[in-house]
């Protein structure tokens, strides 16, 4: 996993995406710009974050979950 470590914690790039989500950004395009990551990495990364329960996807918009929120400052 590129965004979530085997121990369930976000990697550096995963944490960047979570922080962007926590700030209210909701689309991969917005997150990529904010986190300074390539768009393809963010599309793949948010998918991982959702699978790990750290982010949620609803109606095409991403948001951070309570679990995800606890893992980033």
């Amino acid at each position: 996993m590129a965004c979530v470590s085997p121990d369930g914690k976000p990697t550096e790039s995963g944490a960047k995406m979570l922080r962007a989500l926590k700030s209210g950004l909701a689309t991969p395009e917005e997150i990529a710009k904010d986190a300074g990551l390539p768009l393809f990495r963010v599309r793949s990364g948010v998918r991982e974050l959702v699978e790990a329960g750290l982010a949620a996807l609803e109606g095409g918009s991403y948001s951070i979950t309570d679990t995800g929120s606890e893992l980033v400052q």
Partner: peptide
């Protein structure tokens, strides 16, 4: 090496 990627992740590039 950058995680699981799909072709569609590159759409727009």
């Amino acid at each position: 090496t950058h995680g699981v990627l799909k072709l569609e992740d590159f759409k727009g590039s």
